[in-house]
Write a protein that binds this DNA or RNA. Structure first.
Lengths: 231, 231
DNA sequence: TTTTTGCTGATTGTCAACAATAATCAGATC
DNA sequence: GATCTGATTATTGTTGACAATCAGCAAAAA
C-alpha cells in the first residue's frame, strides 16, 4: 500500500449521509418519471432495495415532504404528491413572475457570450420543431429557461425556479404536447432573447411572463382564475 | 364512563406524528426568536427536553432543512441557518414580485369588507407609530401583508410568502427599527390600500412591489445589486 | 511558550426491535 | 350475492443500542 492508497482509505469517511443520497435519488426518480403522482413509497421495500435501514428512508421522505414532492399521511404512508389543477394553475402564476424577475435583472447586464449561448438553445429547439422531436425540444427548453435564471445572478431565484419546475412534474398535463405548441413556444423564446439582447428590462420581463402565462392560459384560463377543486 | 367518554378514549389514536409536532414547535421557536441564526440544535438535549426519542427529532430537522430554516452538516449537527446579506437581498427581490402578484390578482376582486379589514390594520399601526410601539406595529404589519395575499385566493402564493417571511427571521437586520421607518411604512400601506380599493391591478401591484423593495434598498441598494459575500 | 499528538467523551448516523394503526382477508349473517 | 364482523397481516411511528465521527482536552515534543 502506497501513501496515496493509505490516504484514500483514511479518507473513506462519511461525507454525505444516506439520507441525502436517498433524497436525491427519489428526486431524480420523480424528474425522470420513474415515480408518478399518486405512487406510494413503501419504506420497507425501499429500504430492502437500497440496502439500508428504514431510518434514512424516513428522514429523506420528511425532507421531500417539505419540498412538496411527497405527501406524508400519518399511519398510512408516503405518496408522491398529486398536483391538482388548481395548484398547478397557482404554480404557473408564481413561476411567471419569478421568470419575469429573472428577465428584469438580466436584461441590463447580459453579455454577448450569454446571448450566443441562449441562441444555440433556440437553434436546437428549432430543429426539434422541424423533426417534431419533443424529446429533443424538452431538455433544451428547460435549459434555456434555467440559463436565463442562472445568468440573473440571484441564486435563490435559481433554486426556487428549479424547485417549482421539479414540482410541476407532479402535474399530469403538458402544453408542449399540444399540436403546434413547440413552434409557438420557440417563437416566444426568440422574442425573449431579442428583448434581453436589446437590454430592455421591462419588455424582457413581460415577454418572459407572457411566455409562462400562455401555457397557463391554455390549460386554466386567465390569471386569478382557478379551476374548481377536483373530487 | 358514558358513551361520549368512550368515544373520546377510542379516538385517542395518533392523528399527528411527533415529527410534525416537533417541526412546528421548532418553527414557532424561530419565529418567536427563541432560536436564533447560528444556534445549534442538539438532538439528545432536545429529545430529553421534549420527552421523545431522537428519531422524530431527526425527521423534523430533515424537514426544516428543506424549508431552509436549518443547515444540516453531516457528522456535526443541525444549526439554525444564518442568512447572509446576499441571500437576504435575493429573498427581498423574490418577495417583492410575489407580493406584487398578490396585489395584481386582488385589486379587481377586492370586497368592501376586505378593504375595511385592511384599513383596521392600518389604523392600529398608526396608533403604534404615534406611541412608538414597534411591538404593536410589527404583528399588525405582518397581518396586513398576510391578509392581502390570503385575499388573492392563490393558496400556494400564501404559503410561499409565509415561508419566505419565516425565513427572513434568520436575517439579523431589520428596517422597521430605523428611525421614522414605521411612519413611512404605514404611509405606503395607505397607498397600497388606495390602489387596491380603486381596483387598479397595475398600480396596486407596483405599490406593493415598491413597498418591499424600499426595505431592500435601505439595506442593500437597487435590484440586481448584491452585497459581497461575507467571510 | 507554542505546536503537535493522542485519547476521551459527546454527538451524530444507522440499525433492529417493539408498539400502534390501517388495510386486507376470511367467515358468518342476511 | 351483498354486507358485516373479527382476525390477521402489512406497514408506519417510535425507541434504544451500536458504530462512526468530531470536538475538546491533556500530555509530549519542539
Amino acid at each position: 500500500m502506497t501513501i496515496n492508497d493509505a490516504g484514500a482509505a483514511l479518507h473513506k469517511r462519511r461525507t454525505e449521509s444516506m439520507t441525502t443520497l436517498i433524497r436525491r435519488e427519489l428526486e431524480r426518480m420523480v424528474e425522470h418519471g420513474e415515480l408518478s403522482a399518486g405512487d406510494r413509497l413503501n419504506e420497507n421495500a425501499l429500504a430492502a432495495r437500497l440496502g439500508v435501514s428504514r431510518g434514512p428512508i424516513r428522514e429523506a421522505c420528511r425532507g421531500l415532504e417539505q419540498s412538496g414532492l411527497v405527501t406524508v399521511i400519518v399511519n398510512r404512508g408516503v405518496f408522491i404528491r398529486q398536483l391538482e389543477s388548481r395548484e398547478a394553475a397557482e404554480l404557473y402564476e408564481i413561476r411567471a413572475v419569478l421568470y419575469a424577475l429573472a428577465g428584469r435583472i438580466l436584461a441590463p447586464i447580459i453579455t454577448a457570450q450569454q446571448i450566443a449561448e441562449l441562441q444555440q438553445y433556440i437553434d436546437v429547439m428549432q430543429s426539434a420543431v422541424e423533426s417534431n422531436d419533443l424529446n429533443l425540444f424538452y431538455p433544451n427548453n428547460l435549459r434555456f429557461h434555467e440559463e436565463i435564471v442562472r445568468f440573473s445572478g440571484n441564486e435563490r431565484l435559481n433554486s426556487e425556479c428549479m424547485a417549482l419546475h421539479r414540482e410541476m412534474h407532479l402535474f399530469r398535463r403538458r402544453t408542449l404536447d399540444l399540436p403546434g405548441r413547440m413552434q409557438i413556444s420557440n417563437d416566444e423564446h426568440r422574442a425573449i432573447l431579442a428583448r434581453l439582447a436589446a437590454h430592455e428590462p421591462a419588455s424582457a420581463s413581460s415577454e418572459l411572463e407572457r411566455h409562462v402565462l400562455t401555457s397557463r392560459e391554455a390549460l386554466f384560463g386567465p390569471v386569478g382564475h382557478y379551476p374548481a377543486h377536483e373530487s
